[in-house]
Simulated assay, not measured.
Amino acid sequence: MRTARAQNGFTLIELLIAIAVFVVMAAMAYGGLSSVISTRETVSAALDRSKTLQMSIWRMRGDIEQIVNRPIRDSFGDSQPALFGSPDIGLQFTRNGWRNPLGDIRSNLQRVAYRIDEDDNLVRAHWRVLDRAQDSAPVESVLFENVSNVEWRFLDSNREWQDRWPADASIGASLSGAPTPAGAGNYEPPLAVELRLTTPAWGDLRFLFMIPGAER
């Protein structure tokens, strides 16, 4: 009498159960991986914003804390103060310490300006020469995007804040190079410069920059 041979393998039901378990595990693994990728992208974006903020603060501090009392002549040949600023024109000044790694024949002084452009960005501009010609064009870079509010203030020798500088002069210049009716004069720099601005990424920001060498 013959005996039945044992059959090896999986039944259809067992295969279906195995596939279902694999699908559930794959879905769980994909959900976890997607969450990790999303978190990583969020962290990377936050780190990029933080890096941009730190670089912008470093750039402004390096500029403002090296202000020197050196007036210039603009592209119209008119004298401009070493530093002037107001709510409508922004801030413009002469700074020291312009690095020259290539050894070019030029001054180590640099004319710098901060203004709000037509896209509501806070822009830093600098010129390659101090006393400009009519074809002297600024080199610009964006520091903060979508600025909804910006305020400059200047601390005078009486420890009082002024919303324009020079505080006792009528400055009507623009950062594009239009002349100032008051002329350059002999205006000492303020003791400190304060900047307040508002952006969607950072909300309300306040920066205070001391000017070394200003009369205390």
Results as ranks from 00 to 15, higher is better:
Leu155Tyr: 10
Leu155Phe: 15
Ser141Gly: 09
Asn69Ile: 08
Phe93Leu: 02
Gly85Gln: 04
Asp104Phe: 08
Gln80Cys: 10
Leu83Cys: 11
Glu145Pro: 09
Gly90Leu: 11
Gln92Met: 14
Glu160Ala: 14
Ile67Tyr: 02
Asn108Phe: 06
Asp120Phe: 06
Val68Phe: 05
Asn108Leu: 09
Pro81Leu: 08
Asn158Gly: 11
Phe76Leu: 04
Phe84Lys: 07
Ile64Ala: 04
Arg124His: 14
Arg115Gly: 06
Ser141Gln: 12
Ala133Gln: 08
Glu65Gly: 10
Arg70Leu: 04
Asn100Arg: 02
Asp104Glu: 14
Glu160Phe: 04
Phe76Cys: 07
Glu160Trp: 03
Glu140Ala: 15
Gln110Thr: 13
Pro87Ala: 12
Arg164Pro: 06
Asn146Met: 04
Phe84Asp: 15
Glu160Cys: 09
Leu122Gln: 00
Leu130Tyr: 01
Gly85Ala: 03
Asp117Arg: 12
Trp98Asp: 15
Ala133His: 14
Asp117Phe: 03
Arg61Ile: 09
Leu109Ile: 10
Ile89Arg: 05
Gln162Phe: 03
Asp120Ile: 05
Ile64Met: 00
Asn149Tyr: 12
Ser148Asn: 07
Ala82Lys: 04
Trp127Lys: 01
Ala137Trp: 06
Ser148His: 06
Arg106Lys: 08
Arg132Gly: 01
Val123Arg: 03
Ser75Ile: 02
Gln162Arg: 15
Ser141Asp: 05
Ser75Glu: 05
Tyr114Gly: 06
Ile67Ser: 04
Asp156Trp: 04
Arg115Met: 12
Asp163Lys: 08
Asn121Glu: 13
Gln92Phe: 04
Arg99Phe: 10
Arg73Phe: 13
Arg70Phe: 00
Asn100Lys: 05
Trp98Ser: 08
Asn121His: 11
Phe84Pro: 13
Gly97Pro: 03
Val129Met: 10
Val147Phe: 09
Gln134Val: 13
Trp161His: 10
Ala125Ile: 11
Arg70Ile: 03
Tyr114Arg: 01
Arg124Asp: 12
Phe84Ser: 15
His126Ser: 06
Arg111Ser: 14
Pro138Gly: 05
Gln162Tyr: 02
Arg132Asp: 00
Glu65Ala: 11
Ala82Tyr: 02
Val139Phe: 12
Arg115Trp: 12
Pro101Leu: 02
Asp88Cys: 08
Leu122Asn: 01
Gln110Arg: 11
Trp98Gly: 13
Ser157Asp: 15
Ile89Gln: 07
Phe144Met: 07
Asn121Phe: 01
Glu118Tyr: 00
Trp98Thr: 08
Glu145Gly: 14
Ala113His: 12
Arg153Ala: 12
Asp74Cys: 02
Glu145Thr: 15
Gln162Leu: 13
Glu140Met: 10
Leu83His: 09
Leu143Met: 15
Glu118Pro: 03
Gly97Thr: 07
Gln80Pro: 00
Val139Asn: 13
Gln92Trp: 08
Ile116Phe: 07
Gly85Thr: 00
Asn100Asp: 13
Leu155Asp: 03
Arg115Ala: 10
Asp163Asn: 12
Gln80Tyr: 04
Trp161Ile: 02
Val112Gly: 05
Val142Phe: 09
Leu122Ala: 01
Trp161Lys: 04
Gly90Pro: 08
Gln80Phe: 11
Ala137Val: 06
Leu91Cys: 04
Val112Cys: 03
Ser79Trp: 03
Gln92Asn: 10
Leu130Gly: 06
Leu155Gly: 01
Ile89Thr: 04
Thr94Arg: 06
Glu145Arg: 12
Thr94Cys: 15
Glu151Val: 13
